[in-house]
Structures are given as C-alpha cells and as structure tokens.
Amino acid sequence: MEKFKYIKSTAALIAKENIDTDQIIPARFLKATSRAGFGENLFRDWRYHADGSLKEDFVLNTHPYPSKILVAGKNFGCGSSREHAAWALVDFGFRVVVSAYFADIFKNNALNNGLLPVQVSEAFSEVLIQKLKSNEATELEVDLDTQSIHIAGTEEKELFEINSYKKYCLQNGLDDIDFLLDNRSEIEAYEASEKKKSWVAFY
C-alpha cells in the first residue's frame, strides 16, 4: 500500500448524493481476477455512452486537471461491498475522496487501499461544492498529520477524524493483514481459551 502524508491538488466534483458502488464500477466490470485496470471503467455509465464513446458533459471527461481528489455529495460509496470501487478510484489516480459521510464498508475498503476518505461537515461540504463549481482550478490541501482539509488560498479549513490506528497504517503504508499475522499467537490462544469453549458456534 502506498504511504499517505500530504496532498495538494485540484479536485473533481460530482455533487450528487448517494453515489453507490454500482455507479463507481458497475457489476459487469467486476469479472477481472486481478486488482489492476479497474480505473478504465470508473463511473462507466456516467463516463461513456453505450457505444463506448465519451459523454461530453461528465466531469471526468471535461475536467482539465489531473486531480488526485474527488469531492462528492453525502453518503458516498453506499451499496455493494465491492472493493473494486476503491481499486477503480485508486487506479484512476485518486488518493482522497471528500464527502459529508461515507458508507461503512466503502470507508474500510478505501483505507485498505491507501485511499483517504475525508469526512467533512455538511456545511463545509457545501462551501467546497460551491467553491469548486465557481472555479474548477481550486486547489485543496489534505494533510493527514494534522487531519485537516484546506481550500488553498482561503481561510476555509476543516479538521477531519480518523482512527489513530488507521492513520498510522496510512502514514506508513502498512496493511491490516501484516498486523493480524503478527497477532497469530493471540488468535490461537483465543481459539483454545475457555472463553471460546464456553459457547457453541463450532458444532
């Protein structure tokens, strides 16, 4: 997993609420058996016509900047648990998604792939959306150390929350499996413990 510390970038704006993972990557593109290449079909049905030509009015086709940040309406990533949604966003080049809130499974999937979900207040989200609508060259700064998101060149700034374990993982590019594997003896001790034996899930 790639480390994350600080990013300054323009941002692509999709102001829609409830962007579900079927929009981020439709099911018919989930057939690959590796993690690579999903970016090509990111927001497939919003980005392309049925014949494969680009839709001229969709932000990822019109935005003149290679943005590392996606700003979206609230409840981003709802629906299916497909991690392919996070892979597609990362593969496309995004490192940060900003929304007033995220679906729980998506949030975990993003964090497990070095994609930072920045949850902002609805008020700040509104400021951000208006700012990006009025000037698509607006740059945002996201600093994981100070847990802050800042509209560059303005006073507009907000702090965001992140669990300190997850923060540490992102800062150091570590993933959960390494951590769990290090806990293997504790897991085995738990399996053998009275606590475990006292109930009956194993029958």
């Binding site: 392919h84 499974i105 959960d176």
Partner: peptide, 10 residues
C-alpha cells in the same frame, strides 16, 4: 456483515 476483498484476505 459484508466485507471487502482485503478483509476477505484477512
């Protein structure tokens, strides 16, 4: 509950 593929691996 549902999980992502990295979690399946875990």
């Amino acid at each position: 509950f549902g999980i992502g593929t990295s979690e399946v691996e875990q």
